[in-house]
Design a protein around this nucleic acid. Structure first.
Lengths: 145, 145
DNA sequence: CTCAGTGCAAAGGATTTGCATGCCG
DNA sequence: CGGCATGCAAATCCTTTGCACTGAG
């Protein structure tokens, strides 16, 4: 995991001041590098972190490319660091508890997917930028229950 | 497109009474067979259709397998008929206007994806049930603007 | 007729915004 | 110090729920 000074540099490098809420958000996401809900982030935060501040921090760090967000199948916002996210990856969601984990596909498969995605552009006039695969399942814990 | 009597049969076949809002929902979805937002459905409805009624109808027809729902990248509910959805398919979302369209991949590619998805079960202890690919892009209309 | 289904209004949950105060640089 | 960022509270947006009334069977 990165050190606090490193996170400060990261923020400043994007023209963002290194404030406590932003540093804490980065650290929480690094501590548990999988998509986390707003609720989880708040409860991991030590001091007081206002919801509005968190939402604003997410929006800023997202624009700066330091974090990624996604929407869970039930419509809620999840957040993860870009450390993990720099490698192209996908998400598996648990239908039981709504938790999510990251997975990667082989380069081969990714190439095949991209090739077919390109066809969409040709056949529909769309300009395609990215894709993400959402996999639904039941996690180990929820299977046991 | 199906006729009204056909839609009645469909509803009754699932133990649902054939009421105006339900018939209208089915018809609207068939008229424009792509994922539609709540807002779009309401504005396509002729008479008065209460939001609460629409949400309840969606929930019932979803349980009955007559429609499918999904969550757009901005977290809103989209709905489509199962007519189109019976074939396994994926979605392309426009970043400009949030519209969505359906696409299909080749059987070959689907098989490859499923094979890798199976690996998740083995390596993570998850029980995987389904996958869906979300593709982001810009639609023809939004490209022009 | 009778009860499931509807419309309306109010409640809920997630996210956003306004504003006075506080902390970073 | 000066101004951007925070916390708090109120506002908003989407969705759900409660309840009295209506229409399908």
């Amino acid at each position: 995991m990165e050190t606090t000074p490193e996170r400060k540099v990261k923020l400043r490098g994007q023209g963002l001041s290194a404030t406590r809420p932003r540093l804490e958000l980065l650290q929480i996401l690094e501590n548990d590098p999988r998509p986390q809900s707003i609720e989880e982030i708040i409860s991991s935060s030590s001091g007081k972190l206002a919801l509005s501040t968190l939402y604003r921090a997410i929006s800023e760090l997202l624009d700066a490319g330091l974090i990624e967000t996604l929407v869970s199948p039930d419509g809620k916002t999840l957040v993860e660091t870009t450390l993990q996210a720099t490698a192209h990856h996908h998400h598996v969601f648990c239908k039981g508890c709504d938790k999510a984990i990251d997975i990667e596909f082989s380069d081969d498969l990714e190439k095949n997917i991209e090739a077919e995605v390109k066809n969409i552009e040709i056949s529909n006039g769309w300009k395609v930028s990215d894709h993400s695969i959402e996999i639904l399942g039941i996690c180990e814990q929820c299977t046991v229950r």
